[in-house]
Design a protein around this nucleic acid. Structure first.
Lengths: 139, 139
DNA sequence: CAGCATCCCCGCAGATACTG
DNA sequence: CAGTATCTGCGGGGATGCTG
């Protein structure tokens, strides 16, 4: 495990760090992230509390609190989600879409719906592709 | 090749591996991946050759050949992109959208266009959020 | 209940080299 | 030209523990 020598970078003439992504790409990432999609779609129906969202989404896959919180923060920062924290004990926080967020959510939902509708075609295409490439699933 | 040392796992009672993502999520990933979006939008105009795509996309950020190839393979496997390899020297490969891919590309483009249109609002929201949180960008 | 801080694994993706 | 193969780093994201 040759730990020493910073090695990497090799020739190096410029920073090794990947470019920071243009701002629009970042919005897209937030909108289409694994849980961003689900959050937006759920909030399109009605506002939800934190753990309400979590349970609701759990039908599709487990969300860690961390990732849900992060997702919500990203969306809030982008002005897509409104966070209403009521100063009571125990804490009660409602999340809802802003007008901007509603627009975004409609787009995202359209894409998600299309994906669901066309899933069969995609699956068939995948199977055909795999067979053609000899990557049999059964072997 | 992904040796994946099962090692550690510490407490673990169940597999450490993250769940494999439902098939629909995988399609979404391909469609909205960093380069997937660009590829679909470019191919919506007209068919492109490999390096044509690469150059065209490079206005937005550098794509490694590896990632472009991978992106195209994913989209091809999902039946969204058609690959036409002409048996000549030097090689000549044309990529174009299938009917299914065209539908997908329209959805993705709509989302991308919305993002561009609303970018100003998002940026303002971000700035306001950062100020409110004390994360001043200048200070 | 709704988070934040910390630790740590493993898989995405860039760089480099080689091929038909 | 249009890819493949191989190595490696870095950071996304899960698990756990603590707080208001």
């Amino acid at each position: 495990m040759a730990v020493s020598t910073a090695a990497g970078s090799a020739v190096a003439g410029e920073p090794i760090a990947g470019e920071p992504l243009c701002p629009q790409r970042m919005v897209m990432e937030h909108l289409t992230s694994r849980w961003g999609v689900m959050v937006l779609i759920r909030l399109l129906e009605r506002s939800h509390r934190f753990s309400e969202l979590r349970r609701s989404i759990s039908t599709v896959g487990r969300v860690s609190e961390k990732m849900l919180a992060q997702t919500l923060q990203n969306l809030e920062r982008d002005g897509l989600v409104h966070r209403d924290a009521k100063p009571v004990i125990p804490p009660h926080v409602d999340y809802s879409l802003t007008d901007l967020g509603r627009e975004a959510a409609e787009q995202v939902r359209a894409l998600a719906l299309w994906t669901n509708e066309r899933m069969d075609d995609v699956q068939k295409s995948r199977a055909a592709y795999d067979v053609a490439k000899g990557r049999a699933s059964g072997f």
